[in-house]
Design a protein around this nucleic acid. Sequence first.
DNA 1: TCATATTTGTAATGTATGATACATCTCGTG
DNA 2: CACGAGATGTATCATACATTACAAATATGA
Lengths: 290, 290
Amino acid sequence: MAHSDLTIADRIQSGLDTLTRAERQLAHAILENYPASGLGPLSALAKDAQVSGPTVLRMVQKLGFSGYPEFQAELREELRAKAKNPIAKHDTWTEGAPSGHVLNRFTDAVIDNIRHSLAQIEPDAFDEACALMADTGRAVYIVGGRISHTIAEYLYLHMQVIRPGVIHVQSTSNTWPHHLLDIKEGDVVVICDVRRYENNTLKLAEMVHARGSKIILLTDQWRSPVHSLSDICFSSRIVVPSAWDSAVMPLLLIETMISAVQDLLWADTRDRMEALEDMFDQTKLFRKFT
Amino acid sequence: MAHSDLTIADRIQSGLDTLTRAERQLAHAILENYPASGLGPLSALAKDAQVSGPTVLRMVQKLGFSGYPEFQAELREELRAKAKNPIAKHDTWTEGAPSGHVLNRFTDAVIDNIRHSLAQIEPDAFDEACALMADTGRAVYIVGGRISHTIAEYLYLHMQVIRPGVIHVQSTSNTWPHHLLDIKEGDVVVICDVRRYENNTLKLAEMVHARGSKIILLTDQWRSPVHSLSDICFSSRIVVPSAWDSAVMPLLLIETMISAVQDLLWADTRDRMEALEDMFDQTKLFRKFT
DNA sequence: TCATATTTGTAATGTATGATACATCTCGTG
DNA sequence: CACGAGATGTATCATACATTACAAATATGA
């Protein structure tokens, strides 16, 4: 807030006693449905409070603004700040680091990304995507680009355990057409494509689309060109205070999918996981969990 | 609401696909801080979205309003209505999904993990780790296990661009000793090791520790056995309502590190990144960003 | 590759809006 | 009750704003 830490509402409230008759009327009208009424035209507010235009203007000036537009600008600023707050209020995440520390700034941005992205997701689409991936009648192909293949692989590594028929394809590799030789109608292709969208990925999408496969797309807020070919599309906000983009939100989505698919297939997965445990034990790849 | 039960945000949301480039930019700007941005002057919104005034107007008309003022009037009406119903609060992340939906439960857990993990991190240790990774006098080895190698690779792919002398080692591969032949005292080894801690990773840690390398460990709340050998250790909470663990917090940490190291090395990185851009342009690997 | 349609931006225009000057009213005070 | 100082409203003005018309740019399809 430009002028002080107090909101305009607070300031009006505290000064209520010192106001004159018309000003008090006006003050109540503003507070009545705050801040909506203050965001309309001056004349509308005046009419609503049954006072004259100049009275509104004088009040606004008493509050320290040079004019009505400036007053409105601060109201909007309050609104912005309020909308941000629900969880990001935590102004420092790491105690001992100033709020300007990269750890705090970065986390703020990520939480904000999560909030915005989830607000846009349609739960039905999510459930549908999970149902597709849980359908063992369909093969599942998982595709990622240069950077995004890392989270694609993360999805792959888990899906591989959960169900059979999961194939990992790297679109940056020239050999991707080989992996798609056997793809057929009804198969599911999960594509991760965030900006610096890659031509290879688009080509791949076009090919599998032509084959009649279902495309589930994980992309960013601007949406990969693949999205026009996709059956289900999830867009994540990925902007952070960095020269790079954030993969946290896409990863969160992927993990949630893994969890949901796992639940759908629990009966089958159980055996697979136990079998895997046995194999690990035999190969002594892992230490016993202590 | 005057026109329908849907809020303007909903209507914009649902029509996102049918929009053109400039309109989509605008739509995102409106949703970004909704409804504040829509309550300012048309020109301000246009500038914010980096589109022209008329584009805003056309969009508003597409939404069924006769003009911008009418659009704003409904935004204010929504605000009024929302202020009246304090029950319509966001206690869920995705509207339209019950609070018990996996999307909401999972996200709750992840946010909780982030909060707890960051509360435990010592900013000084973080800064020190970044300084080590930014020191081009030291080689940086990045190591991950069976699953964690995906986020280790994510770190690698970025560090590779930021600075020279970055090596990716996969501890699950039998060939890892080959990659460490040249490691020397003072070099930095970033190890990702979360539960199902792997024997190979511990062996590797012991070896590089003996060589006098600095170990930065990313692990979970129970801490990998490597932690006794590590110089700097970050533990992330990774429990989520799933049969699997979450890699979101480790990834968040890694991304923050990338950002911090990038900042420390900005002068040098700049050239590297530009060189990379040129190479991408030449090989036409990526589409031009639209 | 060119031609056409669609999208987008620029510049001009008219109007709604906020600001100003001044007249009127209200209320306290002698 | 009259006077004056502050409060409030009316009428006018200036301008910032939304709107319109048109041109440039971009995408689409032959």
